[in-house]
Design a protein around this nucleic acid. Sequence first.
DNA 1: TCCGTCTCTAAGCGCTTGCTCACCCTCGTT
DNA 2: AACGAGGGTGAGCAAGCGCTTAGAGACGGA
Lengths: 208, 208
Amino acid sequence: MSAAEETPGGEDMPWGEVTPEAARRLLVAAVEAFAERGYHATTTRDIAGRAGMSPAALYIHYKTKEELLHRISRIGHDKALEILRAAADGDGTAAERLADAVRSFVRWHAERHTTARVVQYELDALGPEHRAEIVELRRQSDATVRGVIDEGVAAGEFDVPDVAGTTVAVLSLCIDVSRWFNAQGRRSPDEVGALYADLVLRMVGAQK
Amino acid sequence: MSAAEETPGGEDMPWGEVTPEAARRLLVAAVEAFAERGYHATTTRDIAGRAGMSPAALYIHYKTKEELLHRISRIGHDKALEILRAAADGDGTAAERLADAVRSFVRWHAERHTTARVVQYELDALGPEHRAEIVELRRQSDATVRGVIDEGVAAGEFDVPDVAGTTVAVLSLCIDVSRWFNAQGRRSPDEVGALYADLVLRMVGAQK
DNA sequence: TCCGTCTCTAAGCGCTTGCTCACCCTCGTT
DNA sequence: AACGAGGGTGAGCAAGCGCTTAGAGACGGA
């Protein structure tokens, strides 16, 4: 992680790598608008307006509206993959690492559900090359989770008849959090993360 | 179920209740287009073209493009709820009924993933009143699944610390099948249904 | 035969869209 | 003081949008 993504205090600063500041403001505005209305229902005038700029200003920093979506999608997927890998490559048993991965992955999808919604559900709005690039990142996410489950099975920790299918289900479950999660709801991101980690351990038949 | 929805052979005839035939052709075309590109990216000309008609023909059968989406959404949700209730109100233990519900619900989301994708992911494109109507149907789906889990817990069949949260997770898991399922993929709708029924039984801690 | 009804089309209206262009303002450098 | 570079704007273009309208053709009943 680059220094630009962290404040001096060390807390996470999203979109810190996007410069200059005007480009970042536009990108944050686009994330909000895309998450609320969807990519196709969002106009470039709406994005520029939210960022406090004229419609033409957008095209100084981004070539097209689709490039904006691609930047958002790319950064978001990189972050999601980084979170999964940090947990998967950590110490501990396969069960501990899987629970860790699910907990942090779900927490991210809940906490930053605005971004996650765009990242996960607006994939089809990308052009062919950009979409292919993102699909490859997803393949890596899948491989990361499958690896932990494989290790758990090999170590006798898990009981999983269908590793590939279970991997898809686990990732699907986590990703869909961004669709239904509501910040005003009863549950905090931490609570949902803990619940889901428990559910996934049950899915893979980890002994408690 | 009305007679119009079934062929003489008894097999399921989707959109059978939509008449006249031209209106049904338009609706089927709209489902395909909405599923492929999303509601906002689909033009009325595209829908009419797929149905082999002129753009103006659409407005003989539907007042607006949004009404088309509403009809699709309404019929789809009715069908989904009917499937869930048929399983939940059946005979057998809570575990059997929950497995049955998940199996048939998932099978529907896989088999008819085109429709399901529109029904489940284009909710926000509806106007306020139409959206409220659909949200109410979803509440009933949630209540149906929650009921079965509650009964399983009461009967000592299940071990579920958080019934509300687990219900959301189960439904979310099933619904998201429509996003990733691919007819050309390796798995049949039946196989995915069986896998998911097993996974859900594990999630609720049903003894095998 | 004439009429009213229903389904559908060709043409197009008013508006919004993504995006461009000519121009201006604010800088740090010389 | 003069300058070049880069970030910003107001106005607007071509294209495409959802939807309407005038009228054509088919058809059943009086």
